[in-house]
Amino acid sequence: MNITRLRNSAEYRAFKYINEKRGWKTDRKIVVIESDDWGSIRMPNRDVYEKCLKQGFRVDQSHYNKYDSLASKQDFEHLFSILSQHKDKNNNSPVITANTLVANPDFKRIEDNNFSKYYYERFTDTINRYDDCSLAAWNEGIDNELFFPQLHGREHLNITRWMEYLQSKSKEIAFAFDNNLIGLGPSITNNKLPSFVQAFDQKHYLADHSIEKILKDAVSIFEDVFGYQSKSFIAPNYIWNKRIEEVLANVNVKYLQGGMVQKINSKKNIYHYLGEENSFGQLYLTRNVIYEPSSDLKKDWNSLALKQIKRAFQLNKPAIICMHRVNFIGSIFEVNRVNNLKLFNELLSQIVQIWPEIEFMNSAQLGDLIASDADL
Rank of each mutant, 00 (worst) to 15 (best):
K51A: 00
Q74G: 04
L166C: 08
L70I: 02
N288D: 01
H86I: 00
E172H: 14
I370D: 08
L341Y: 02
S93M: 05
S84E: 13
F57E: 07
A371Q: 15
I173V: 14
K267P: 02
K108V: 00
F226H: 09
Y118H: 12
E276F: 01
V48I: 14
N190H: 14
L181R: 01
V219A: 15
A364R: 10
H152F: 00
I244S: 08
N90I: 01
S349Q: 13
I3H: 11
F76I: 08
L146F: 04
I159V: 14
Q74T: 12
K307C: 12
D178G: 03
G56A: 09
I332S: 06
E50Q: 09
I18M: 03
S69Q: 08
L193S: 01
G39F: 01
Y284T: 09
N345L: 10
F123R: 03
S294T: 10
S187E: 13
H156R: 05
T126W: 06
N158G: 03
Q365K: 07
L283H: 03
K87T: 02
F147C: 05
D132R: 11
G23A: 03
V219R: 11
S303G: 13
K268W: 13
E140M: 14
Q150S: 07
A312G: 04
Y165G: 13
R7V: 15
P186Q: 13
V253M: 01
C52L: 01
S363M: 15
G367N: 04
E20Q: 02
S331P: 07
T4L: 15
F115E: 09
S9N: 11
N250V: 11
G281I: 11
I142H: 07
I244D: 02
H324W: 08
V338Q: 09
Y130N: 04
L297K: 10
H156F: 04
K298D: 12
N191D: 15
N252P: 04
S40Y: 00
S84P: 08
A374R: 01
G258K: 00
N288G: 03
L166P: 02
N19L: 01
Q202C: 12
N90D: 15
V352S: 04
T126R: 12
I321K: 03
G330D: 02
V48F: 05
K73E: 12
E212N: 03
Q353C: 13
S187G: 09
Q353A: 12
I41D: 15
E172T: 14
Q167F: 00
N65W: 04
E223N: 14
I244E: 11
F196T: 05
R154G: 09
R122H: 11
W24R: 15
N144Y: 05
F80Y: 09
V251T: 10
I211V: 05
E34N: 04
D125K: 11
K66C: 03
M43A: 05
S266W: 15
Y228I: 05
S210H: 02
F328Y: 12
N340F: 07
I173K: 06
A136H: 14
Q257E: 15
D217E: 14
F328C: 07
I110Y: 01
P194T: 10
I244G: 11
I142V: 05
I173M: 04
E357F: 03
L215R: 09
T286K: 00
S69C: 12
S69H: 09
I110M: 00
C52Q: 00
K254H: 15
F115D: 10
